[in-house]
Amino acid sequence: MTMIAAGDGTAAGAAAARREAPEGHSRSAARPAVVEAKGLSLVFQTADAPVRALDNIDLIIERGEFVSLIGPSGCGKTTLMRVIADLEQPTEGSIRINGSTPEQARLARSYGYVFQAPALYPWRNVERNVQLPLEVMGMSKEERTARSDRALETVGLSGFKKKFPWQLSGGMQQRVSIARAMSFEPDLLLMDEPFGALDEITRDNLNVHLLDLWNRTNLTVVFVTHSIPEAVFLSSRIVVMSPRPGRIVEVIDSDLPRGRDLDIRETPAFLEVAHRVRVALREGHSYD
């Protein structure tokens, strides 16, 4: 399946990258964009001086995209995710999630959030951690069990239902947290450097899993990272950000095929996209 991407890829225009919807989801083209930010700014009031965490962000994310936010520390990528998730309020500009406000989207439980740390509840076993959102949503026990079984199957942890978080490795814990975010089957998955604390081998493995998952479903993924290879390997579109103030430098469309394996990282096409990301990062990152 080839994706035709046509973003204009500049900071100012920031791209209504319309693309053909995957087969069987042709209706989705008519629905509002998953994320639609216009002139979004956020200023934190700190003790000494106000900090401009986000500056005039324009970004449209369509259904079924895998969008990575990449940039050095302090460029506002996590803040942007938190604004999408209604965990922070913007000071200027507008943002719509599925056509409604972030708060309405949060109340409608329309996204799953995966944090930098697994944030599992240590007193709950794996199964009950995965069922936590389902309990909050008031699902029946049968429904909860069915859904947590399915989610754990997806991340390959079916045999670990009764284990407690401390009995699992860091990579397994993060997989549990992904299963937890997917257990209520949101259309949008927000992932904030989910694999940042893991070793490279585990990370590669989870990247393959995640990509496979995205290929099989109609998920929209917004993924924060500061690894160029990770961003290029996973994404259909890469948003390059720069710090002080946090803004979008460039939006890079990847023309790599949707079905990828780790070997693609040695191909010229992959290296070409990675090179473009690196150039954009260098452009946006001045040390003066």
Partner: peptide
């Protein structure tokens, strides 16, 4: 910790639920 609380917020959990489950 803040992440554990944020998590509850992303589920739009009520105060009672945050109390009883966290």
């Amino acid at each position: 910790d803040p992440l554990q609380l944020d998590l509850m917020r992303t589920y739009s959990a009520s105060r009672t639920q945050i109390f009883s489950k966290l």
